[in-house]
């Protein structure tokens, strides 16, 4: 795969191996489904506490699978607009995902209340920066800032965009990116050369 990246006539090798990977991945989905049925099925049979939720999971999985694979509308595919699968996706799955994602806002509020203390100089700098970005990158903050006498003339949004986001933040992101990339090359090399084998669960 490395050689085909650099040598033109061998680029078909990369395509071939990618196809192999996709085929293996597809079979792995089956394994995952089997694991789900095993784990949750055992809990349903043993009627452990909360087994109702396990039943809901398995029923949802099965129903969605059936609608997505086997229930064809008059014309088209099971995943087309107006099908039962589409209804499930739009009215159950999407709202559930959006709701779960929106929980983050609440977690951020509680995490902020718990964790953002000016314990040290660095923490204070972090706090001040967080205030600036949080308050003055939203319309309400901009409106309030521009209403202030004198200081309101200063374009705080541009300052935040250019200096904080484009300057300090970008520098930090680049540093982490560089370090992580070098680390990635290193661990990839170790895996390829067989130096790193602990992910296989053995010492040989």
């Amino acid at each position: 795969m490395i050689i085909q990246f650099y040598i033109y006539p061998l680029d078909w090798l990369g395509e071939l191996f990618n196809s192999f990977y996709n085929i293996v991945l597809t079979f792995a989905f089956v394994l995952g489904a089997i694991s789900l049925f095993q784990v949750h099925g055992k809990k349903i049979i043993a009627q452990t506490s909360g087994w109702g939720y396990n039943l809901v999971l398995l029923v949802s999985l099965t129903v969605t699978l059936i609608f997505g694979l086997f229930v064809f509308p008059e014309k088209g595919q099971p995943v087309d607009a107006g099908t039962a699968f589409d209804w499930i996706f739009n009215n159950i799955f999407t709202p559930l995902c959006s709701t779960t994602y929106s929980l983050l806002a609440f977690y951020i509020a509680s995490a902020s209340f718990r964790a953002f203390r000016a314990r040290s100089a660095q923490a204070t700098v972090l706090l001040v920066t967080a205030f600036l970005v949080m308050l003055f990158r939203v319309p309400l903050g901009e409106y309030i800032w521009h209403s202030l006498p004198w200081v309101g003339q200063f374009d705080i949004t541009a300052f935040i965009d250019d200096w904080i986001m484009g300057g300090f933040n970008a520098a930090g992101q680049r540093a982490i990116m560089l370090g992580a990339s070098v680390g990635l090359v290193s661990i990839s090399l170790k895996i390829l050369l067989g130096i790193e084998v602990s992910y296989l669960g053995g010492n040989d």
């Binding site: 370090g179 070098v182 680390g183 990635l184 290193s186 661990i187 170790k190 790193e196």
Partner: peptide, 30 residues
């Protein structure tokens, strides 16, 4: 563990010379 510390963790935990050597190599590149 931030960024490359995750990749270095395995080497750090095992303590094997080969693994430690790779960590040093990473640091030299950085």
């Amino acid at each position: 563990l931030m960024g490359e510390e995750l990749y270095a963790a395995s080497a750090y935990l095992s303590g094997e010379p080969l693994q430690i050597g790779s960590l040093k190599g990473q640091d030299a590149v950085k």
